[in-house]
C-alpha cells in the first residue's frame, strides 16, 4: 500500500467522526422542535439556543474535516 492510498483511507476514516456530530444535531433539533411545538411562544429563545447547540455539536465534525484536510493536503 503506497502512501497516497493510505492518506486517502485515513482521510475517509477521519470523517467517520461526523457520525457523532450528525446524531447530536439530530437529537438537538428534535428536542428543539418538540419544545417549540409544545410552547410556540418560546420559539425565539429555543431557536437561538438550538443554533448555539448545533454550532457546538458541529464543531466536532469540523475538527474531523480539519484533520481530514490536514491528512490529505499537509501531512
Amino acid at each position: 500500500m503506497d502512501a497516497a492510498a493510505a492518506k486517502l483511507i485515513g482521510a475517509g476514516i477521519a470523517m467517520l467522526g461526523t457520525i457523532g456530530a450528525g446524531l447530536g444535531i439530530g437529537i438537538l433539533v428534535s428536542g428543539a422542535v418538540q419544545g417549540i411545538a409544545r410552547n410556540p411562544d418560546a420559539s425565539g429563545d429555543v431557536q437561538t439556543n438550538m443554533i448555539l447547540g448545533i454550532a457546538f455539536a458541529e464543531a466536532v465534525a469540523i475538527y474531523c474535516l480539519v484533520v481530514a484536510l490536514l491528512i490529505l493536503f499537509v501531512g
Binding site: A55, A59, I62, V66
Partner: peptide
C-alpha cells in the same frame, strides 16, 4: 476553538 470552528464551518 471558536476561531477554528467558525472558519472551518463556513469553509467546509
Amino acid at each position: 476553538s471558536k476561531i477554528l470552528s467558525f472558519s472551518f464551518r463556513l469553509f467546509g
